[in-house]
């Protein structure tokens, strides 16, 4: 039994990609093994931990719950892409300064999830930040520093208008 495959064409971090993929391969396996974009991580592969979060057509999705073939024609953005465009440079800087990560394994997913709060920043409480991030598991930090870093970024953006 050889693996069933399909050809897909999509945009990943602004670059057009055409590849033949196994139909059962999920999006993050595709990004990691076919494209070498190892910034997206796998923590559970059943949709709970959020380590695999990526943006697909402007929505944050769990890359482990989406098949690569479902991304045919889509625009996919990973942490590598967000880094290149500078869209979350301030958030990343605040994560580093506040040490909002230890092992860093959850960090790309956290950043992508938190970036949703930054797109049209409005005042949010720490509870709201916690609520927004509560689908992303971090075993190392205890979350406090992550909340601090996100809060600082939002406040700075609001101040800068």
């Amino acid at each position: 039994m050889s693996e069933a495959t399909l050809e897909i064409s999509l945009t990943v971090n602004g670059e057009a990609v055409t590849k033949t993929v196994p139909v059962r391969q999920h999006l993050v396996d595709f990004l990691r093994t076919e494209l070498g974009l190892t910034g997206s991580h796998l923590g559970c592969e059943h949709g709970v931990c959020g380590a695999c979060s990526v943006r697909v057509d402007d929505a944050v999705v769990r890359g482990c719950l989406m098949l690569a073939v479902q991304a045919d024609g889509a625009e996919v953005v990973t942490v590598e892409g967000l880094t290149e465009t500078g869209e979350i440079a301030d958030l990343q800087k605040n994560f580093v300064e506040r040490n909002a990560m230890q092992c860093g394994y959850c960090t790309p997913g956290m950043l992508i999830t938190a970036s949703e709060l930054l797109r049209e920043p409005k005042p949010v409480s720490r509870e709201e930040i916690r609520g927004h991030l509560s689908g992303n598991f971090c075993r190392c930090t205890g979350y406090h520093a992550i909340v601090d870093a996100v809060e600082t970024t939002i406040n700075n953006r609001l101040e800068e208008g």
């Binding site: 590598e80 994560f95 040490n99 990560m101 860093g104």
Partner: peptide, 21 residues
């Protein structure tokens, strides 16, 4: 002082065992 490894992690450039192929 902040950690160099943190700068790498936020850019998705961490290098974990499964990233080595």
């Amino acid at each position: 002082l902040s950690r160099d490894a943190a700068k790498r992690a936020v850019a998705g450039r961490g290098r974990y065992t499964d990233d080595i192929m």
